[in-house]
């Protein structure tokens, strides 16, 4: 039986310039494992969006990627402010990002929708004032 591989990253909430590093590393790792280009792209887009969200909204967090036999799972866990209205946050174009964030090219309100679009399974658990946990899977 093959054992699953787990990559774990701490996403630094202060550092906008390094945002995306975990996703880029995951992309490299998955490429080395020989996963298909399609799966790699979907995982890395979903993960990047999640990573950026954690930097913009939550002051960082933990990202974990588990490579299983039939899917890749991404778990994003933060202790940020939580999402008040998940349905609203899932709408394309809805964003609570500040103007400064927008001037950097973020805050298009496409983060969560992209994460859903690029994954086969996604759940969001969030409590205001406590944090948010997102689990996503991309089938191999």
């Amino acid at each position: 039986m093959s054992e699953e591989l787990v990559f774990r990253f701490t996403v630094d909430g202060e550092d906008f310039t390094s945002a995306g590093q975990a996703s880029v590393q995951v992309k490299k790792n998955l490429r080395q494992l020989g996963l298909s280009a399609e799966v790699i792209k979907r995982v890395s887009v979903a993960m990047y969006e999640g990573e950026i969200n954690m930097v913009i909204h939550a002051g960082g967090g933990i990202a974990e990627v588990r490579v299983c036999e039939s899917y890749v799972e991404i778990i994003l866990d933060d202790k940020g402010p939580g999402i008040k209205d998940i349905d609203l946050a899932m709408q394309e174009g809805y964003s609570t990002a500040t103007d400064t964030i927008r001037s950097l090219g973020f805050g298009a309100g496409m983060g969560l929708p992209n994460m859903r679009k690029y994954t086969d399974y996604m759940t969001i658990e969030s409590e205001v004032g406590v944090g948010t946990k997102i689990v996503m899977r991309v089938n191999c």
Partner: peptide, 27 residues
């Protein structure tokens, strides 16, 4: 808009932008 580009640009595309920060490179 970086998320937009992430979601829609395809592999091999030439990406035209006026954004100049380092996040462009991750995307």
């Amino acid at each position: 808009l970086l998320s937009w580009v992430m979601g829609r640009a395809e592999s091999g595309n030439a990406w035209i932008t006026i954004m100049s920060n380092v996040n462009v490179l991750a995307v």
